[in-house]
Every structure is written in structure tokens, then in C-alpha cells.
Nucleic acid binder design. Sequence first.
DNA 1: GGAACGTAAGTTGTACACAATTGAATTGCC
DNA 2: GGCAATTCAATTGTGTACAACTTACGTTCC
Lengths: 146, 146
Amino acid sequence: MGMPDAPRLDRQVCFALYSASRAATAVYRTLLEELGLTYPQYLVMLVLWENEPRGVRELGEELGLDSGTLSPLLKRLEALALVERRRSAEDERRVAVHLTDAGRALSSKASGVPQHLAAAAGLSPRELDQLRETLGKLTAALHDSL
Amino acid sequence: MGMPDAPRLDRQVCFALYSASRAATAVYRTLLEELGLTYPQYLVMLVLWENEPRGVRELGEELGLDSGTLSPLLKRLEALALVERRRSAEDERRVAVHLTDAGRALSSKASGVPQHLAAAAGLSPRELDQLRETLGKLTAALHDSL
DNA sequence: GGAACGTAAGTTGTACACAATTGAATTGCC
DNA sequence: GGCAATTCAATTGTGTACAACTTACGTTCC
């Protein structure tokens, strides 16, 4: 029944991680549908709601995404009229991403999302805390190993 | 400094999940490079190494992926001569995915991957166990909420 | 002040994910 | 038996991810 030493074991943690991440994205998908955002777009908006304007590189550092991902994503946010990209006057290489009024206004419509997600998670606050901490350690160790 | 009630809190667990998952995929990317596989392709091979042949739908159920993801992925595995797809004779709708000799042989080359990943994770066996369990509960709850 | 180096954002190409649709094959139910 | 409903895989279209490359701009250091 199966190959003698096929690495089944490893499916465990990494596959669990992969599955959980996709499941969370799926829940976000339904919640964010009425806002017209995807999960990565929502993450960018979260960063901008905290503090704006931000450079593309800055956004990339906060989210761990590179310009290959962010450039088209920001173009779509701009097409939705939620952000504006302006070439910096001092440094023409930089593009500052500003919120529009509509982008700022979306913040209040998104304010219920975290509670919905916490409810859908079905874990106690203690478990969520523990999970966040373990995932942080894991991410750091994985990055160090590269 | 920042919007009054922008939902920063929620970046925590879900963003941690998203980051950890991408970090794990990045480590797999370097490990699997010499095998010529991506992480999702490796997952499919793991399932096939366990038991073979499998239908596309079966693979999809094990991995939580649909035919829109699997069909092109399996085509690439076939182009690599690791699998063969054969229309079932009894039910012409079904496609059975078989391993080739090369596909079977790859199993031994992949046998070191789990250990490498466990080492890169930097977590104790107890933490990994706990993490796997919590992620399992989380994934189940998230799926139930849809 | 001009070449070498470095940095920022964008582009290209490959590979997932997933919703929605299609088309072929099977099953159920009259 | 025959047709509607279902099932299966593939396809289409959109949106990430990320490596590799390009282009434009700045900085340094002669």
C-alpha cells in the first residue's frame, strides 16, 4: 500500500499551512466581495489606511511582496479609483501611492471584516495568540534558512 | 497617526498565515528546484507516490484543488514525463493519472525534502505538532463558515 | 563633470488559484 | 427507451506570486 518511504509525514505541517492559508483567503473572498477587493488588495489598503502616502517599495517591505506583484495590483486599485500613484518630485524614481476620498471612505465599510474572520476561525483568543506567535517564529526561521 | 479605527488588529493571524505559507513555499522552491518541481506539483506527486493511479477529481479532493488548477498542472507533469494521463475505458469522462518510471524514481530523490524543511522551520517537534493541530481546526472552521 | 555603481518601479514570462462556463459521458427516472 | 439532471475534465478569464530583465534616475568617487 504505497511506496515504502514516500515522504507522507511532511504533508502535515506545510500542507496544513497551505490549506489554512487558502481557506482564510476563501473566507476573505466572500467578505471582501462587496467591497470589490481581493485579499492582497485589502492588505495594501490596510497599510495605506494606517499611514499614507507610501512608496511602492515601502508597501513591498511591509507585505513581503515585490514590484512584480504590486505594480499590477496598484494599477487595479487605481482603476477602482481607490488610490492614485504620483511620481515623486524630489526623486523621479519613486512613486507615492495616495488614497483617494473613495479609498479613505472604504475603511469604514471594511471595519467589520476582522470580527467576521475571528468568528469564522473558531479558535479561542488564546489559541489565536499562540498561533500568531508560532507562525511569526516559523516565518522568521524559514526566511533565515534562505 | 493613522485612521481612528482602521482594522490593524486583523493583520495579525491571517497575515501571519499568509506570510508563513509564502515563506514555506519559498523554501520548497529552492529544495525542489533540482527536482524540477514546484510545490503544488510536489504535492500531487506525494499523493501519487502514496497510491496510484488516481483520478483528477480524487487528486482535487485530497489537495483541495479544482480542475482549473489541476488540469494545466498535470499537463506540465506529463510534459516532464513524470505522469501519464489515460482516459478510463469504463467511464470515458474520467482521466486516470499514472506515474511513469521516471515519476516513481523521483520519489527517492525527494526523500530528503521533509527533513530539510523540518530543519528550516526552527520549531520543536512539540510546537510543530501543536501548530499542525491548530491549523487543522482552523481550516475546518473556515470551511464550515462558507 | 562624467563614468560606475546602486536603487526604484515597471515589464515579461511562468505557474498557481479559483469562478464560471463548456462539452462530453453517465445516471435516473419516468 | 429516452430525456433531464448530474458528473467529470477541460477551458476561459482574472488576479496573484515571483524570477529575471529593463529603464530611468541618483549617488559616489574620482
